Amino acid sequence: MQRVNMIMAESPGLITICLLGYLLSAECTVFLDHENANKILNRPKRYNSGKLEEFVQGNLERECMEEKCSFEEAREVFENTERTTEFWKQYVDGDQCESNPCLNGGSCKDDINSYECWCPFGFEGKNCELDVTCNIKNGRCEQFCKNSADNKVVCSCTEGYRLAENQKSCEPAVPFPCGRVSVSQTSKLTRAETVFPDVDYVNSTEAETILDNITQSTQSFNDFTRVVGGEDAKPGQFPWQVVLNGKVDAFCGGSIVNEKWIVTAAHCVETGVKITVVAGEHNIEETEHTEQKRNVIRIIPHHNYNAAINKYNHDIALLELDEPLVLNSYVTPICIADKEYTNIFLKFGSGYVSGWGRVFHKGRSALVLQYLRVPLVDRATCLRSTKFTIYNNMFCAGFHEGGRDSCQGDSGGPHVTEVEGTSFLTGIISWGEECAMKGKYGIYTKVSRYVNWIKEKTKLT
């Protein structure tokens, strides 16, 4: 034993070699072989497995989906700052455009905790909710729209109204504003409101030439003092309507412009014939205590009207009353817009006519005020429907199939267009061939041609 100890002390290297040989010859039971080890760690190889990531292109799944990435790591994937920024906006807080917040056709661009709407022409605001041009839906104005110097929408209202708090709607500024039905039992019968379409306001006024200088022999019209197929109006439903009495009662109609003036057809009036105007009328054979009678003290036909040349060209006249009318729910003026808007309103496509005229061709006159909704007829169809001249200051309205029309005794009465609950004068009943005849239409004086003249002559002093 002493000898062994001496050998170990003198030859430590020998001992180490012996131990190493023993270990190498022993069977290893701690580690699995290569094949079995792979069965336990069965993990798919990654895209760049075996390579240094710093030297390969980034992978979106590896960089940002398996674990949260930084902007720089995302930049490695896209290799483009702009594309990385677009991805980053949604990656950080989701897609803010998912709810489609942009209105009126706006395009949404996502941002971090926010979004941006790219608005089409005519709109602005956070969600493109603000109209900035009158060309689109009248700028959301209830009545009139004008573009300011910086191309912003400025709404306005006709006389007797003021802008509401929203700067879009119009509200009454006087007790009985024009064009409004205020009798409670008839307010439910107000005709369907007309909503502004998209309009090209630059070209809204037709490029028409008034044929002022045409000389033409007097034409022989049949029954051209021209509501057939209409309905009984309720008291106060058309408070701007008046009836004219002269040699015979209810020979023509008219509309209240203001307390002192009536507008009617020029062919209705004769110099030297006494005319009485009755406002607030409903049943011409009954006294309903809503009527107001006034005498006409002055007749002003349009300066281009000449019955000797043509009885229905420039067929418009103004009547001055001896005493002002007292405005109330049964006696209310009709609204008159400017030339541009009167023309736009007419193009809405349908209007209402009213009167006490004959209820059928050569038949009896109506006792109760009649009204009828009539569609506008395109000019080409209008011209083809008659052998008589249709001037540019006239328009056609009615039904091709016949059966409904204005008729004798309705002449001078109103053709009105309702705009968001307020009625505007767009025409004056003038003439036609018979009444409600198939293929024939009622012919009306186009008020847009005469609004400046009306307003100039009827100013209240």
Rank of each mutant, 00 (worst) to 15 (best):
R3N: 08
V4E: 06
N5G: 13
I7S: 06
A9G: 15
A9H: 08
A9N: 13
S11I: 15
P12S: 15
G13M: 09
L14G: 03
T16L: 13
T16C: 12
L19F: 12
L19T: 04
L20Y: 04
L20V: 10
Y22A: 12
L23Y: 07
L24N: 02
S25D: 05
C28W: 01
T29R: 05
V30T: 15
F31M: 15
L32E: 14
N36L: 06
N38Y: 14
K39Q: 09
I40R: 08
I40V: 12
L41T: 07
R43P: 13
K45R: 13
N48I: 05
G50A: 13
K51Y: 05
F55T: 15
V56E: 15
L60Y: 07
E61H: 10
E67T: 12
S70Y: 06
F71I: 14
E76L: 09
E76T: 12
E76G: 15
F78R: 15
E79F: 07
N80Y: 04
E82A: 14
R83T: 13
R83K: 08
T84A: 14
T85G: 12
E86S: 15
F87T: 15
F87S: 15
F87W: 15
W88Q: 15
Y91N: 15
D93N: 15
D93K: 10
D95F: 10
Q96D: 14
E98T: 14
E98L: 14
E98M: 09
S99D: 10
S99Q: 15
C102K: 01
N104I: 02
C108V: 02
K109H: 11
D110L: 15
D111F: 12
D111Y: 11
S114F: 06
Y115S: 04
C117E: 02
F121L: 13
G122H: 05
G122L: 04
K126C: 05
E129Y: 03
L130V: 12
L130T: 13
D131C: 09
T133E: 15
N135S: 12
N135F: 15
I136E: 14
K137W: 05
K137L: 10
C141D: 00
C141Y: 00
Q143K: 00
F144M: 06
F144W: 02
K146G: 05
N147Q: 13
N147H: 11
A149D: 09
N151Q: 09
K152L: 11
V153Q: 15
V154N: 08
C155M: 00
C157L: 00
G160S: 07
Y161K: 00
Y161C: 00
L163T: 05
E165W: 07
E165V: 11
N166L: 02
N166S: 04
K168V: 08
K168M: 11
S169T: 12
C170R: 01
P172W: 03
A173W: 05
F176Q: 06
F176G: 02
F176C: 03
C178W: 00
R180P: 02
S182V: 10
V183E: 07
Q185I: 10
T186K: 08
S187W: 10
S187G: 10
L189N: 14
A192H: 08
A192R: 06
T194Y: 12
T194I: 11
V195C: 06
F196T: 12
P197I: 08
P197T: 11
D200V: 11
Y201R: 10
N203I: 07
A207M: 14
T209S: 14
T209D: 11
N213W: 04
I214F: 07
Q216A: 12
T218A: 08
S220C: 05
F224E: 06
F224I: 12
F224M: 12
V227Y: 08
G229H: 07
G230F: 13
K234C: 03
Q237T: 07
P239C: 00
P239R: 00
W240E: 00
V242N: 01
V243F: 11
N245E: 05
K247R: 14
D249T: 02
D249Y: 01
A250H: 11
A250V: 08
A250E: 05
F251A: 10
C252E: 00
I256R: 02
I256M: 03
E259N: 06
E259R: 06
K260Y: 06
K260T: 01
K260G: 03
W261D: 00
I262M: 01
I262N: 00
T264Y: 00
T264I: 03
A266K: 02
H267P: 00
H267R: 05
C268P: 00
V269R: 02
I275S: 03
T276I: 07
V278P: 00
E281S: 10
E281N: 07
H282I: 11
H282Q: 10
N283Q: 09
T287F: 09
E288R: 06
H289N: 13
T290E: 05
N295I: 02
V296E: 01
V296K: 01
I297H: 04
R298F: 02
R298P: 00
I299R: 04
H302I: 02
H303S: 07
Y305C: 01
A307I: 09
A308I: 06
I309K: 14
N310V: 03
N310A: 11
N310Y: 04
N313S: 11
D315N: 09
D315Y: 01
I316C: 01
L318K: 00
L318I: 04
E320C: 02
L321F: 01
D322P: 01
E323V: 14
L325N: 00
L325K: 00
N328Q: 02
P333K: 04
P333Q: 04
I334E: 01
C335I: 00
C335Y: 02
D338H: 06
D338Y: 03
T342M: 03
T342C: 03
T342H: 03
I344H: 15
F345R: 02
L346M: 06
K347I: 03
K347N: 09
F348W: 09
G349A: 07
G349W: 06
G349L: 04
S350K: 10
G355R: 15
G355F: 15
R358L: 08
V359K: 11
V359F: 14
H361D: 15
K362T: 11
K362N: 14
R364W: 05
S365R: 12
A366E: 09
A366K: 12
L367R: 14
Q370G: 10
Y371E: 06
Y371F: 15
Y371S: 09
L372V: 11
R373H: 13
V377W: 03
V377Q: 11
V377G: 02
D378P: 13
D378K: 06
D378W: 03
R379T: 14
R379N: 04
T381K: 08
L383Y: 11
R384K: 11
R384H: 13
S385Y: 15
T386S: 12
F388M: 12
I390P: 11
Y391D: 14
Y391M: 14
M394R: 03
F395K: 01
F395C: 02
F395D: 00
F395R: 02
C396L: 01
C396E: 00
A397K: 02
A397M: 02
F399G: 09
E401H: 14
R404V: 09
S406T: 13
S406R: 12
S406C: 09
S406I: 12
C407D: 03
Q408N: 11
S411N: 13
S411F: 08
G413S: 15
H415S: 02
V419H: 13
E420G: 15
L425C: 00
T426D: 00
W431H: 13
G432N: 09
A436Y: 08
A436H: 13
M437Q: 14
M437G: 14
M437F: 13
K438A: 07
G439M: 04
G439D: 07
Y441M: 10
I443R: 04
I443H: 05
Y444R: 00
T445N: 04
S448P: 02
V451R: 03
N452G: 15
W453C: 01
W453R: 01
K455R: 12
K455Q: 07
T458F: 00
K459L: 09
